[in-house]
């Protein structure tokens, strides 16, 4: 064919191992370097005086009135249709046979109709859900334009004037906390009422909660209400196996909740 066949070189076994070892070692070393870290996430500030927000929900106190869901919709102009929520309340019912039933009519706003007869209920409880404001959020990592991000306070926020509405983050969130706003065409989600925090007010959902089941606070401040709540109770996060660094702590959460 005109092309000279190259001479087959003899690579010794020792050479092969040395070279592939060097390449593998180099790749591992480079991946450890800070700017090239595989997990693109906000770093918890080393300075413990800086705020690092977390949320706490006491399931034992939740009465399932969904005042939080109602207030959130009013405060943040969330569309009234029953599939757009920044936060919502689910009722879990575990029957004597071990079946798990989850209902959330219009996010709890329409009230709950128990279909399981009381004699057949093993256990039932409410679980309010909202953005977990994860420290290693899957949603912010997948954003192709840098519109979803995590602020230095540890809040997962959306830059709505920069979002292209691709919906990748909606799929990436394992907790289902994002939606595409039907009028704006961009992603909308819980901001922990960032605009209220900056004005010195509590988030709307926490302010209206009649039993004080919801709380937020600075995880760096060991005297904050939230830090004490986590310390005094046996708190867990949702889907810990996903290593999202969720910062929404539930007290008395049953293992059936997912």
């Amino acid at each position: 064919m005109g092309i000279k066949k190259e001479k087959k070189e003899n690579v010794s076994r020792r050479d092969f191992f040395l070279k592939s070892g060097a390449i593998a070692g180099g790749v591992v070393f480079v991946s450890l370097l800070d700017p090239l870290k595989a997990v693109f996430a906000v770093k918890e500030p080393k300075d413990k005086r800086k705020k690092w927000y977390g949320i706490g929900i006491d399931i034992e106190k939740c009465i399932g009135c969904a005042s939080c869901a109602r207030a959130c919709k009013k405060e943040n102009d969330v569309p009234k249709e029953p599939f757009f929520f920044r936060n919502w309340v689910e009722q879990y019912t575990i029957t004597n046979e071990g079946d798990i039933k989850v209902i959330s009519p219009n996010g709890g706003i329409d009230g709950y109709k128990q279909t399981v007869p009381e004699a057949n209920i093993y256990k039932t409880f409410f679980v309010p859900k909202m953005c977990n404001h994860c420290a290693k959020s899957p949603c912010t990592q997948v954003c192709p334009v840098g519109a979803s991000f995590e602020s230095e306070e540890g809040l997962a926020l959306v830059d709505q004037s920069y979002c292209i509405g691709c919906g990748y983050c909606v799929q990436a969130c394992p907790y289902g906390c994002r939606y595409i706003h039907p009028d704006k065409g961009v992603v909308d989600k819980c901001t922990l009422c960032y605009h209220r925090l900056k004005k010195g007010l509590d988030p709307a959902c926490m302010m209206v909660c009649p039993t004080g089941a919801r709380m937020y606070g600075d995880l760096h401040d060991k005297d904050s209400k939230l830090s004490k709540f986590i310390k005094d109770n046996n708190c867990v996060v949702l889907k810990p196996q996903l290593n999202t660094g969720a910062k929404l702590y539930y007290n008395a959460l049953s293992q059936e909740v997912h």
């Binding site: 943040n76 926020l157 004037s161 007010l201 709307a204």
Partner: peptide, 18 residues
């Protein structure tokens, strides 16, 4: 970070209704 810093101001400028 990898986002518009001004977005923080824009989000915090929303009116508090409660």
């Amino acid at each position: 970070g990898h986002y518009r810093g001004k977005a923080l101001d824009e989000i915090s400028n929303h009116e508090a209704k409660y």
